[in-house]
């Protein structure tokens, strides 16, 4: 504000308006032009219905969503009953629009057990993954690593880890340790490490370096200096990211069951294969409530940490 004022004053004093040169309007930045062109080209290539595109037609979408496609359903589920989709649509409609529709409140053991198992998988993966993440996050930051080689290796490994989607980790761990909750826990542990290490080590670069210099000047080893001067500074952010990872894990745990790695997804895929939509919608609803509740609690804790 004060800067603008002083410029004006100076101009008023030294330069009559006639002597000033008005600049031409600059052309758009090359970044803007190239960026927009690239955006449009990429969108066309990916959306068009051809070899390299997925055939996405935004205009046809509302129509398709308004009515299901019987041929699709028959081919998919080996059912010829045309009422199937009517049932499905009707079920969705009554459950989500009619407040009087009775919810089947009794959760059978498959659903209840699946939900509990989902929570357990998320809890174990978050605690174990977050515990491993703190030292790795320090090493993943330039400031925190004892030397360049360690930094480069940790960073490369974590980038590889983050590039592998959790469900692929789950499928691989099913091969290594068999089906059940264990591969799910291991997969989400890897996922937690990827998220927490990345986010936490980004915080390291912004901390106050003074205490680290003080620890070095006191003759502390690198590890001791990091523990006493750096870790206390990143602890609130780290705790917040760990809770965030818990939210993501709880949501991500849904998909594990589809590759045999336990949790609510197992019940979901089972009832789906049985065409028991009643049960599927119960699962979805209860699971959503669980996710929303946990997320609200987690967010309020994180707000206090921040």
């Amino acid at each position: 504000m004060s800067g603008e004022a002083s410029v004006d004053r100076e101009r008023g004093r030294t330069e009559p308006a006639g002597r000033q040169v008005r600049p031409r309007k600059p052309p758009p930045q090359p970044f803007t032009i190239l960026g927009l062109a690239g955006l449009v080209a990429f969108t066309l290539v990916t959306a068009w219905d051809w070899a390299l595109g997925i055939g996405f037609d935004p205009l046809a979408l509302p129509g398709e969503l308004a009515d299901s496609n019987p041929a699709m359903v028959e081919g998919l589920f080996n059912v010829t009953d045309a009422d199937w989709r009517a049932q499905y649509v009707e079920l969705l409609r009554t459950h989500f629009t009619d407040p009087d529709s009775p919810w089947p409140l009794s959760l059978d053991s498959r659903i209840g057990g699946g939900l509990v198992e989902t929570v357990q998988i998320a809890v174990l993966a978050t605690i174990v993954g977050a515990a491993l993440s703190l030292p790795l996050a320090v090493l993943n930051a330039r400031l925190g690593a004892p030397d360049r080689v360690t930094h480069a290796v940790v960073k490369a490994l974590n980038n590889v880890n983050r590039a592998i989607p959790d469900v692929i980790w789950a499928a691989l761990f099913v091969v290594l340790v068999g089906v059940g909750a264990l591969p799910g826990i291991l997969a989400l542990t890897m996922f937690t490490i990827g998220v927490v290490v990345k986010l936490t080590s980004d915080v390291v670069d912004g901390i106050d370096r003074g205490p680290i210099e003080a620890a070095r000047a006191a003759g502390a080893s690198h590890a001791a200096a990091m523990r006493t001067a750096l870790v206390p500074q990143i602890l609130p952010a780290y705790a917040s990211f760990s809770l965030y990872a818990f939210e993501l894990n709880l949501r991500g745990a849904a998909v594990l069951g589809f590759v045999g790695a336990g949790g609510i997804g197992q019940a979901m895929s089972y009832y789906w294969s049985q065409l028991d939509f009643e049960a599927v919608s119960v699962i979805v609803f209860v699971y959503l409530v669980l996710v929303v509740v946990v997320e609200q609690v987690s967010i309020s804790i994180r707000r206090r940490l921040g």
């Binding site: 398709e64 969503l65 299901s68 496609n69 998919l76 949501r251 998909v255 979805v284 959503l288």
Partner: peptide, 18 residues
Amino acid sequence: RAIPEIVLAIALIPFLGL
């Protein structure tokens, strides 16, 4: 935010196919 993508995808299959 709460709905997992996989749940939405399953719900959409009868409309948009697989």
